[in-house]
């Protein structure tokens, strides 16, 4: 932002929209709660392996399905693994899945939506056609098809590369799950973002303030940056925060169905699906990952809501 403190008026502090928005965000308690939780999630996801009390794989068959105790805060699962360690390690999966799905779909969606909304005509018709086609593909079916058809050859290829080169990178096939399953998920999730962006651009382009800026001779790039993008931002932020939670829930359901993240790598989804089998006897096995997933989803929506309000001057009191 080019805004600087104006010398015009000393008694009142001058801020740019970004600074103004930050101040509003800080003042919003729910948003702060969301932000703290999200930051905590990131912290845990990044430093997970260093702060887990136990190794997420180490089994203690003498202490299976233990209820929460001082040794195991969230208890242990049916193989005697510490649930808290697994939840902490699972946050990595959740963050990677959430961000890869959302950022892939957002990049494609922004590009396609902006393309259609800005150029209109035949290009727009093509984009809308593509959106319609993509939306008609059932996401579950596609992910299963990709998983079944593309994953084995890719894993084989990586094994072959490892044998040929000895490079450790090729040994860790867990990345194949992430990239393949959630990358492809993003490939069919982009229409939602594209529709939002396209709609926003179509409506903002015809707004009088854009015309007024054009009448002042403001160049197009500046109009896009200062007029179109800020006005289009609200729904996109809501889309991001809603989709982050949604992606984590989706990952859970894919893991539940056996596609996506495979055991023993913990994800909240496969922990929930494990817990579901025995939850009548040992409810804590289900409760911990489910509660964490719920809290994180809510935290993202609090933060998204807060950001949306903070960035929109019309919402200020």
């Amino acid at each position: 932002m080019t805004d600087q403190a104006l010398p015009l008026q000393q008694e009142e502090k001058q801020f740019s929209l970004a600074k103004d928005a930050f101040i509003r965000l800080i003042a919003n308690r729910l948003a702060i709660v969301g932000m703290v939780l999200v930051l905590f999630l990131f912290f845990v996801a990044i430093f997970g392996p260093y702060i887990t009390p136990y190794d997420f794989l180490s089994q203690d068959l003498m202490a299976r399905n233990q209820p929460p105790s001082w040794q195991h805060w969230f208890g242990t699962d049916d193989l005697g693994r510490d649930i808290m360690s697994r939840v902490i390690y699972g946050s990595r999966t959740a963050v990677i899945v959430g961000f890869s799905t959302v950022s892939f779909s957002l990049v494609i969606g922004l590009f396609m939506g902006a393309l259609g909304g800005y150029f209109g005509g035949k290009i727009d018709a093509f984009v809308v056609w593509l959106i319609d086609i993509t939306m008609s593909i059932p996401s579950l079916l596609l992910v299963i098809v990709i998983n079944v058809s593309l994953k084995p050859p890719l894993v084989n290829w990586m094994d072959a590369r490892f044998l040929a080169t000895g490079n450790e990178f090729y040994r860790n096939t867990i990345w194949v799950d992430f990239v393949l399953v959630f990358g492809s998920l993003a490939l069919i999730k982009w229409p939602k973002a594209a529709r939002i962006v396209r709609g926003q651009i179509l409506s903002i382009r015809n707004k009088n303030y854009v015309l007024a800026a054009e009448a002042l001779g403001v160049p197009t790039a500046k109009i896009v940056r200062r007029y179109v993008i800020p006005n289009a931002l609200g729904p996109i932020i809501v889309y991001i925060s809603a989709s982050l939670g949604e992606a984590m829930v989706l990952e859970s359901s894919f893991s539940f169905l056996g596609v996506g993240v495979r055991p023993p790598i913990p994800s909240w989804g496969n922990m929930i699906s494990d817990g579901l089998r025995i939850w009548q006897l040992y409810p804590h096995v289900l409760a911990a990952p489910a509660a964490v997933l719920a809290i994180v989803t809510i935290a993202f929506s609090f933060l998204g809501d807060g950001l949306n309000d903070a960035l929109n001057p019309r919402q200020w009191k």
Binding site: L17, N208, Y209, A212, G217, R226, Y227
Partner: peptide, 23 residues
């Protein structure tokens, strides 16, 4: 563009929507 910015001024019909709410 530069003529618009220097020689001609425009006033529009609807003042309620002629200003960018984010600026």
């Amino acid at each position: 563009n530069s003529i618009r910015g220097s020689k001609v001024g425009m006033i529009f019909q609807d003042p309620m929507t002629s200003l960018n709410p984010f600026m």
